[in-house]
Design a protein around this nucleic acid. Structure first.
Lengths: 157, 157
DNA sequence: CAAAATTAAATTGTGTACAATTCAATTTTT
DNA sequence: AAAAATTGAATTGTACACAATTTAATTTTG
């Protein structure tokens, strides 16, 4: 009764499920560390971006994290409530909301520095294997969501 | 000002973010296909399990998908509303709820057979590379959530 | 066997994700 | 410059995730 013209529908054969399960395991593994910092996992990723570059707009943060305003707006409101960031309309363009770290938000970077090392030790992967896996996942994501590469480059109307 | 005793806090260096982004890209890539079937991504995974083995309990489904009743109960209610499954207390143990496919649920397997092939063609990965990546992700997840292996085996109180 | 402990689902509450819509500000067209 | 189109956030509504609690059924203990 097997139909060899189709790949398997078995759960354990699916790359998508392995990815989904691994991603949730990773989030769960971060949770106790991030609890110490008072951050959720997406909030931590957001702080990583802001520690790199302060004063981004919601749109720029969204591009970096690949999240839209529907996700970011409430998340950023919570970071603001936690006094880690400020949200202010730009004078130059009142549509844009600029996100800036508060002193507390900037200070949180210090204890956060221990997080990547702590996780790395849990992974039992060499730095090289870690990099390779990371880059394979980036390529996979790029393959799945080519940045509208197929859209014609507006030759004419 | 770099502190070489710590791994990087840069977003693009993080395996966790690559995993998180890839997982969401994968879900997004499945969405148009699953819309045709009237399923969400977690609902599709649930159906994969049931097409393999019908009549599982909520607990058994949860073990397979690594999801708890807080997630599964409402998801299964929606599958029941869509007339794809039935939910019934077991006579043998009234605590357990048995999930069975309806004829419609079983029939949905046919159009679903096209889904893995369609996704595979999007990935531009050889079957071997796909398997390797999948197995690396499984190992990563296993490493991150060892089934309480470190808990002492209850030697004494 | 009755009380205590355990188990399986369901419920409650918080926090994402994301499509679709709304609203206000800005830019482009006419 | 006024109308039309576009843009950036916010809002609305649906669907997960998951911790914590509750409830009911079953099993274990004393």
């Amino acid at each position: 009764m097997n139909d060899a013209t189709h790949p398997s529908l078995l759960l354990d054969q699916q790359l998508c499920f392995a990815l989904y399960a691994a991603s949730r395991s990773m989030t769960a593994a971060y949770r106790p560390l991030l609890d110490e910092l008072g951050l959720t996992y997406p909030q931590y990723l957001t702080m990583l971006v802001l520690w790199e570059q302060d004063g981004l707009t919601v749109r720029e943060l969204g591009q970096r994290l690949q999240l839209d305003s529907g996700t970011l707006t409430p998340l950023l409101k919570r970071l603001q409530q936690a006094a880690l960031i400020s949200r202010e309309r730009r004078r130059s363009d009142e549509r844009e909301v600029e996100i800036c770290l508060t002193p507390e938000g900037r200070a949180l970077r210090e204890p956060a520095k221990a997080v990547p090392a702590c996780m790395a030790s849990r992974l039992c992967l060499s730095h090289e294997d870690m990099q390779r896996l990371r880059d394979e996942l980036k390529q996979l994501a790029a393959q799945l969501s080519p940045p509208q590469a197929w859209l014609p480059p507006r030759t004419q109307t």
